[in-house]
């Protein structure tokens, strides 16, 4: 039997080894995390790129950028086409162009949702249908989240799909191309609203708003210099609750904080910060290095959180007439 003395290692040696391993992990982990974040950031950028491709196909098919529908009380209706007659919003309108025709067509041919319970049930399935492209992987998983806000033309699903992106509603918060809530929202089509060029120019400087039908010719600052959509800000305390007023409905609803954001002067983009800015009107993202914005020409730009507020506002305005400095991106 060998004496134990002289073999093995002492407690101190063990602790030294553990400490060294600990320090190595401490040095390595941030690098690994940064690499993972870089990959997620790239994936997020790709998602916006695909949303851009789908939007441009929508422009090819219909002659105008996807409309943001009727307002937050409504979800998409496959029997109402595209443009101002369609209650569903931006993301509902691009579904067929991103190979999600099946979700877009849920409930098709079942008639008026006010009288057809079958249709309302199918539209509830639509509200629950998760599309991974509509999520930023740095923020949250592409799964259903608690259902909070209902729609007039659909039943309440048990869980609801979400999106981490939002269409550009211009520089004025919630005064979309359609009439402001509540007048026309309830009374459509008997309301003081027009889709003519002059009316659109006078009342709306974004690209996708209530019942908007903005054509490429309306983007007078140039499609390269105008936001089409981007990442939306969200308070991290509400990533999974579904209760944030700007994230309490599905991606397919009409014009609302959930699916539209604005670039008013004070609404500079911001990185998601716990406890801050619930019901946000601004663009923003979970990425530490800045956010991605999709331009009307389909390109995706990295925008710094430190972007000049004036430049950010002008990028959100399709007819600002102000040149965008080359250093903006």
């Amino acid at each position: 039997m060998r004496p134990s003395k002289g073999s093995g290692f002492t407690l101190v040696e063990l602790l030294v080894v553990i400490t060294i391993i600990g320090i190595l992990i401490g040095l390595l982990l941030p690098a690994v995390q940064a690499a993972r974040e870089a990959a997620r950031r790239l994936q997020c950028k790709n998602h916006l790129y695909q949303i851009g491709r789908a939007s441009l196909q929508h422009v090819d098919s219909h002659g105008f950028y996807p409309s943001s529908g009727w307002g937050y009380l409504w979800t998409g209706d496959p029997d109402r086409g595209f443009g101002h007659r369609q209650p569903g919003g931006f993301f509902y309108n691009i579904l067929p162009y991103m190979e999600q025709e099946a979700i877009h067509q849920l409930g098709a041919g079942l008639g008026d949702p006010h009288t057809s319970s079958a249709k309302r049930a199918e539209l509830a399935k639509q509200k629950a249908a998760v599309v991974s492209i509509l999520h930023c992987p740095s923020r949250r998983r592409a799964i259903g989240y608690p259902a909070i806000e209902g729609s007039r033309n659909a039943n309440m699903p048990s869980t609801m799909a979400k999106t981490d992106y939002a269409a550009n509603g211009g520089t004025r918060v919630y005064t979309g191309a359609g009439p402001s809530y509540p007048g026309c929202l309830q009374n459509y089509p008997n309301c003081n609203w027009s889709n003519s060029d002059t009316w659109l120019d006078a009342h709306f400087d974004g690209v996708s708003g209530e019942r908007s039908e903005v054509q490429p010719a309306h983007i007078r600052d140039g499609t390269t210099n105008t936001y089409l959509a981007g990442e939306k800000y969200l308070n991290p305390n509400h990533y999974h609750t579904g209760r944030d007023g700007a994230d309490n409905n599905s991606p397919y609803q009409g014009h609302d904080w959930d699916v539209n954001r604005w670039t008013r002067l004070d609404l500079v983009p911001r990185q998601d910060t716990p406890g801050v800015d619930t019901m946000s009107s601004r663009f923003g993202s979970a990425h530490p290095s800045g956010l991605h914005m999709l331009m009307c020409d389909g390109s995706v730009q990295n925008i710094s959180y430190a972007i000049d507020p004036d430049v950010h506002r002008n990028l959100g305005n399709r007819k600002s007439g102000v040149p965008i400095p080359a250093t903006a991106f």
């Binding site: 602790l15 553990i18 400490t19 600990g22 320090i23 992990i25 401490g26 982990l29 941030p30 995390q33 974040e37 991290p236 990185q271 998601d272 910060t273 716990p274 406890g275 801050v276 979970a286 530490p288």
Partner: peptide, 20 residues
Amino acid sequence: FLLIVSILFAAGCSRRPRAP
């Protein structure tokens, strides 16, 4: 102490801004 500090360092290295 060193060990604990290094583990805390690794765990606390989230880049999300702190809540106010």
